[in-house]
């Protein structure tokens, strides 16, 4: 297993953090398509695997429904909500 912390893109806001594992992501675009509030956009650079991956640029729109996390076929997305944070 070659994945390490440098493979993870993490964006945090007010106790909510969305992280993408670039080692797992194959760039299918399901999260970008299925997010009800369009939190994700495509990255500008390629990952080490040679694919464009999603970046949670508009994390302020996230409603914490976890649909992206549940639908990701490659277990690459993690949505974490801190205790007590709305």
């Amino acid at each position: 297993m070659s994945d390490s912390l440098k493979d993870i893109v993490e964006i945090k806001i007010n106790g909510l953090s969305i992280s993408i594992n670039k080692h797992f992501c194959k760039g299918c675009g399901i999260c970008i398509e299925m997010c009800p509030t369009k939190v994700f956009e495509w990255s500008e650079k390629l990952s080490e695997k040679g694919v464009y991956f999603p970046v949670p640029s508009y994390i302020d729109k996230c409603t914490k429904c976890r649909r992206c996390e549940l639908m990701c076929p490659d277990f690459a997305i993690s949505v974490e909500v801190e205790e007590g944070a709305g």
Partner: peptide
């Protein structure tokens, strides 16, 4: 990572 193709529903 899984051996499934790009966007395969099996992973879901």
């Amino acid at each position: 990572p899984t051996t499934m193709c790009l966007g395969c529903g099996g992973g879901t």
